[in-house]
Protein backbone atom coordinates (compact mmCIF):
# COMPACT_ATOMS: atom_id res chain seq x y z
CA UNK A 1 0.00 0.00 0.00
CA UNK A 2 1.25 3.47 -0.78
CA UNK A 3 0.79 5.77 2.19
CA UNK A 4 -0.28 9.36 1.87
CA UNK A 5 2.31 11.72 3.42
CA UNK A 6 1.25 13.19 6.74
CA UNK A 7 1.15 16.98 6.81
CA UNK A 8 0.44 19.50 9.56
CA UNK A 9 -0.54 23.06 8.70
CA UNK A 10 -0.74 25.73 11.42
CA UNK A 11 -2.71 28.94 11.07
CA UNK A 12 -3.80 31.69 13.44
CA UNK A 13 -7.18 33.00 12.21
CA UNK A 14 -7.59 35.01 15.45
CA UNK A 15 -4.85 36.08 17.92
CA UNK A 16 -6.11 33.61 20.53
CA UNK A 17 -7.01 30.82 18.08
CA UNK A 18 -4.71 28.27 16.48
CA UNK A 19 -6.00 26.02 13.73
CA UNK A 20 -4.26 22.72 12.93
CA UNK A 21 -5.07 21.19 9.58
CA UNK A 22 -3.91 17.59 9.43
CA UNK A 23 -3.84 15.51 6.28
CA UNK A 24 -2.56 12.13 5.10
CA UNK A 25 -1.98 8.93 7.10
CA UNK A 26 -1.82 9.69 10.80
CA UNK A 27 -0.31 6.54 12.23
CA UNK A 28 2.46 4.93 14.27
CA UNK A 29 5.21 6.30 12.05
CA UNK A 30 3.86 9.85 11.56
CA UNK A 31 2.17 10.68 14.87
CA UNK A 32 5.47 11.56 16.55
CA UNK A 33 5.57 14.83 14.59
CA UNK A 34 2.41 16.15 16.18
CA UNK A 35 3.39 14.77 19.60
CA UNK A 36 6.69 16.65 19.47
CA UNK A 37 4.94 19.83 18.40
CA UNK A 38 2.24 19.76 21.10
CA UNK A 39 4.11 21.72 23.86
CA UNK A 40 5.08 24.48 21.42
CA UNK A 41 1.43 25.00 20.49
CA UNK A 42 0.50 25.92 24.06
CA UNK A 43 1.42 29.60 23.81
CA UNK A 44 0.27 32.04 26.48
CA UNK A 45 -2.22 33.64 24.08
CA UNK A 46 -3.88 30.36 23.13
CA UNK A 47 -7.53 30.04 24.12
CA UNK A 48 -9.02 28.01 21.25
CA UNK A 49 -7.38 25.10 19.40
CA UNK A 50 -9.19 24.03 16.27
CA UNK A 51 -8.33 20.73 14.63
CA UNK A 52 -9.37 19.95 11.08
CA UNK A 53 -9.18 16.28 10.16
CA UNK A 54 -10.97 16.50 6.79
CA UNK A 55 -7.81 15.53 4.90
CA UNK A 56 -6.82 12.64 7.16
CA UNK A 57 -7.06 9.34 5.28
CA UNK A 58 -6.17 6.94 8.08
CA UNK A 59 -5.74 7.05 11.86
CA UNK A 60 -4.41 4.20 13.96
CA UNK A 61 -4.25 3.88 17.74
CA UNK A 62 -1.05 5.94 17.92
CA UNK A 63 -2.73 8.72 16.00
CA UNK A 64 -5.69 8.59 18.38
CA UNK A 65 -3.34 8.62 21.37
CA UNK A 66 -1.64 11.74 20.04
CA UNK A 67 -5.01 13.49 19.66
CA UNK A 68 -5.92 12.54 23.23
CA UNK A 69 -2.57 13.83 24.42
CA UNK A 70 -3.21 17.08 22.58
CA UNK A 71 -6.67 17.29 24.13
CA UNK A 72 -5.25 16.87 27.62
CA UNK A 73 -2.53 19.42 26.99
CA UNK A 74 -5.17 21.94 25.87
CA UNK A 75 -7.36 21.13 28.87
CA UNK A 76 -4.50 21.80 31.28
CA UNK A 77 -3.38 24.94 29.50
CA UNK A 78 -6.39 25.80 29.61
CA UNK A 79 -7.69 26.16 26.08
CA UNK A 80 -10.73 24.76 24.36
CA UNK A 81 -9.95 22.15 21.73
CA UNK A 82 -12.58 21.52 19.09
CA UNK A 83 -12.71 19.52 15.91
CA UNK A 84 -13.86 21.57 12.96
CA UNK A 85 -13.86 18.97 10.21
CA UNK A 86 -13.69 15.24 9.72
CA UNK A 87 -14.73 12.44 7.39
CA UNK A 88 -17.41 9.82 8.17
CA UNK A 89 -14.57 7.29 8.61
CA UNK A 90 -13.06 9.33 11.46
CA UNK A 91 -16.46 10.06 12.96
CA UNK A 92 -17.05 6.28 13.05
CA UNK A 93 -13.66 5.72 14.66
CA UNK A 94 -14.45 8.29 17.38
CA UNK A 95 -17.74 6.52 17.92
CA UNK A 96 -16.15 3.09 18.29
CA UNK A 97 -13.68 4.43 20.83
CA UNK A 98 -16.42 6.56 22.46
CA UNK A 99 -14.20 9.60 22.08
CA UNK A 100 -17.22 11.34 20.55
CA UNK A 101 -18.42 11.75 24.12
CA UNK A 102 -15.16 13.34 25.20
CA UNK A 103 -14.14 15.47 22.27
CA UNK A 104 -15.87 18.57 20.96
CA UNK A 105 -17.06 17.44 17.56
CA UNK A 106 -18.75 19.33 14.73
CA UNK A 107 -22.48 18.60 15.03
CA UNK A 108 -22.81 17.56 11.39
CA UNK A 109 -20.40 14.63 11.62
CA UNK A 110 -21.04 13.40 15.15
Amino acid sequence: METAPFLIEIENPEPDTTRLTLSGDFDYTTSADLAAMTPTLMTSALRVLEVDLTGVTFIDSSGLATLIHLYHAAEEHPAEMRFVGMTPYIAHLFEVTALDQVFNLPTSAA
Binding site: L64, A65, I68, H72, E75, E95, V96, T97, A98, L99, Q101, V102
Partner: peptide, 14 residues
Protein backbone atom coordinates in the same frame (compact mmCIF):
# COMPACT_ATOMS: atom_id res chain seq x y z
CA UNK B 1 -19.57 0.23 22.91
CA UNK B 2 -17.50 2.30 25.25
CA UNK B 3 -14.56 4.64 25.78
CA UNK B 4 -10.95 3.79 25.05
CA UNK B 5 -9.22 2.84 28.34
CA UNK B 6 -6.36 4.75 29.94
CA UNK B 7 -6.95 7.77 27.73
CA UNK B 8 -9.18 10.24 29.52
CA UNK B 9 -7.47 11.74 32.53
CA UNK B 10 -10.66 12.45 34.47
CA UNK B 11 -11.12 8.68 34.71
CA UNK B 12 -14.68 8.89 33.47
CA UNK B 13 -15.58 6.31 30.87
CA UNK B 14 -18.95 5.52 29.43
Amino acid sequence: RGTLLGAIKSGAIS
